[in-house]
Design a protein around this nucleic acid. Structure first.
Length: 223
DNA sequence: GCGACAG
DNA sequence: ATCTTGTCGC
């Protein structure tokens, strides 16, 4: 079994390296990436997918998948140690260098400020935004039913991100800075990448690739 | 002690 | 995350 006390100490060291600012108002990326992880072989193998999209069209320019044996069980608060290896393997296969990336999971909206998006961000040192579908920690005021509405996510009297109603009749998204982005820019760019679905395009497409949705891969290989 | 708990 | 079809609601 893993030594979580040791992993906790490592998280604290990495968390100290997280930069919660970046992306000036005039920032214009050429490529935006999206990353997500799935599992196969009864959960013994992690399958990470990273997609590269053109900005502002958000059309896919590249997509890579990496399979890596799982070394740790899923334990809330320690997810990054489970998924980072596979994500890094996919990252090394890329031929494009994105200026911004979205990852399925929390950034600093984590008990020790080091969710997957922050862990990966600090490791590759590029701007990363965390997009989670569920809350890990923190509280927030109720959201209205209006699409686009948002509320700050608070944890121990500090804002750790935003809760965003990205689409009508859908559960909200939990947006947080991963690395080299501010809370506001994380929210801004997430909104910029929304195209009518609950998830922003980078994460939505990475999820489609990682989960190998039937018909999606066939769709990619055609045209 | 009890409840919460990303993917 | 994953095992899985149809079904109710907007």
């Amino acid at each position: 079994m893993a030594d979580f006390a040791l992993l906790k100490a490592e998280q604290q060291l990495l968390a100290a390296q997280v930069v919660r600012e970046g992306l000036s108002p005039d920032f214009v990326p050429r490529f935006i990436a999206g990353g997500d992880t799935g599992f196969e072989e009864n959960g013994t193998v992690a399958r990470a997918a990273i997609v590269i999209l053109h900005w502002p069209s958000l059309e896919m320019a590249e997509h890579r998948v990496a399979r890596v044996p799982v070394t740790l069980p899923y334990v809330p608060g320690y997810l990054s140690f489970r998924e980072c290896p596979a994500l890094l393997a996919a990252w090394q296969q890329l031929t494009h260098r994105p200026e911004l990336m979205f990852i399925d999971g929390h950034g600093v909206a984590h008990p020790r400020g080091l969710g997957l998006a922050s862990h990966f961000g600090v490791t590759v040192d590029i701007p990363v935004i965390g997009v989670a579908k569920r809350r890990l920690c923190g509280d927030y005021q109720a959201l209205s039913a209006t699409p686009g509405d948002c509320q700050p996510l608070m944890y121990q009297q500090r804002q750790t991100g935003w809760v965003l109603r990205s689409k009508a009749r859908c559960n909200p998204l939990f947006i947080s800075a991963g690395h080299r982005v501010s809370d506001d820019m994380a929210l801004y760019w997430t909104r910029q990448c929304l195209r009518g679905y609950r998830l922003p395009e980078p994460t939505r497409l990475a999820d489609a690739v990682a989960s190998q949705r039937k018909g999606f891969l066939r769709y990619l290989n055609r045209q």
